[in-house]
Simulated assay, not measured.
Amino acid sequence: MRPPPLPALGLFACLAAFAVIAGWNWPGHAGPRLVNVSYDPTRELYRDINAAFAADYRQQAGGEVEIVQSHAGGAFQARQVASGAQDADVVTLGLPSDVEGLHRRGLIGDDWRERLPHAASPYCSTVVFVVRKGNPRGISDWPDLLRDGVEIITPDPKTSGNGRMAALAAFGSVTARGGDEKRAKAFVKDLFAHAPFLPAAAREAGVAFAVENKGDVQIAWESEALREADESGGAVEVVYPPISLRAEASVAWVDANVARHGSEKLARAYLQFLFGDAAQEIFARRGYRPANAEILQRHAERLRPMNLLAITALAPDWFEAQQKFFGENGVIDTIYQPKPRGE
């Protein structure tokens, strides 16, 4: 199945999608090079990860390494890699379905889940709410989002993993409490009706809410919610709903590309580094839930225990959920209307 056409992206998202950030890129640098195509909110995360990996590589190999980063909405990034517009050595994406989609196009090996620890998921995440100081709308649970007059800031599910997670978690919040799929579908439709616009990616949504003061509540990746609260000086707060959805961030080297680049050994080492204690600590500090249970427990005050649904509550697996909800004529197609932001 061909991927759906890309909706028009705002300037912010276009710049984000094609911005290349090199952590070690100086004139005359002749060390090995690796391109990591990731999703939108992981900019600060991989800045820290790459610095730690470069230091480790320097110590182990006695040389320098260049890591080139690309960030934009996860669904958009996956399509960029699939089309060849992004020549990724590795992908570090927010949802397994994005990596599985690349596998089914023949770009990633059949065993991609088995060749790294924890089914190639170095951490998990979820979506939570961000509200104004003092929570003036009294938002604590999913039904509160549909109160009269509440404006929701959430990204577009056609371009953003955050947007897809918001839709799936909202749907699951209904079915997990005994509602049928018809009722859940109506709930998600109403949720999108409360959004004045749908930004292309998670960071753009965060800027709209926390910086530009648009909307009453934001549905955000937990890591973004924590970052926004930390940086706001108390202007916004994180609210944990009673139920949300677990997202297993997934990573893989892109077999078709590393074979051409001669970079498979470096790509393997880089991704294996993500499962070591140093990287797992960085994930936790940056608001992601590390696969290492001991390290997660050490950060339990910040990454508090939550009731997180598995994707199997909604579909047999992540790829089937992608097809059911976001594929051609899927659930979202029947209720979704693009809402680009006006000038």
Score class of each variant (00 low, 15 high):
residue 49 I to V: 08
residue 51 A to Y: 09
residue 52 A to V: 09
residue 53 F to K: 14
residue 53 F to L: 13
residue 56 D to G: 08
residue 57 Y to D: 07
residue 57 Y to R: 10
residue 57 Y to F: 14
residue 60 Q to H: 10
residue 60 Q to N: 09
residue 60 Q to E: 11
residue 60 Q to F: 05
residue 67 I to L: 03
residue 68 V to H: 11
residue 68 V to D: 11
residue 69 Q to S: 09
residue 69 Q to M: 11
residue 69 Q to H: 13
residue 70 S to P: 06
residue 70 S to T: 11
residue 71 H to N: 11
residue 71 H to P: 09
residue 71 H to K: 12
residue 72 A to E: 10
residue 76 F to Q: 12
residue 76 F to I: 13
residue 77 Q to K: 09
residue 77 Q to R: 10
residue 78 A to S: 09
residue 78 A to T: 03
residue 80 Q to A: 13
residue 82 A to Y: 04
residue 83 S to G: 10
residue 84 G to S: 07
residue 85 A to L: 11
residue 88 A to G: 08
residue 88 A to C: 09
residue 89 D to F: 08
residue 91 V to W: 10
residue 92 T to K: 00
residue 93 L to W: 06
residue 94 G to Y: 01
residue 96 P to T: 01
residue 96 P to V: 01
residue 98 D to M: 05
residue 99 V to L: 00
residue 104 R to V: 05
residue 105 R to C: 03
residue 109 G to K: 04
residue 111 D to I: 04
residue 113 R to C: 00
residue 114 E to K: 07
residue 115 R to W: 02
residue 116 L to S: 03
residue 118 H to R: 06
residue 119 A to W: 00
residue 120 A to I: 01
residue 120 A to T: 01
residue 121 S to V: 03
residue 126 T to K: 02
residue 127 V to Y: 00
residue 127 V to W: 00
residue 128 V to A: 00
residue 129 F to W: 00
residue 129 F to Y: 03
residue 133 K to Y: 00
residue 133 K to T: 02
residue 135 N to R: 03
residue 135 N to E: 02
residue 137 R to M: 09
residue 138 G to F: 08
residue 138 G to T: 11
residue 139 I to W: 06
residue 140 S to C: 13
residue 143 P to Q: 10
residue 144 D to R: 10
residue 146 L to Y: 07
residue 146 L to V: 06
residue 147 R to W: 12
residue 147 R to L: 09
residue 148 D to W: 14
residue 151 E to H: 14
residue 152 I to L: 14
residue 154 T to D: 08
residue 156 D to Y: 13
residue 157 P to K: 04
residue 160 S to L: 11
residue 161 G to T: 11
residue 162 N to V: 09
residue 163 G to A: 08
residue 163 G to N: 08
residue 164 R to M: 15
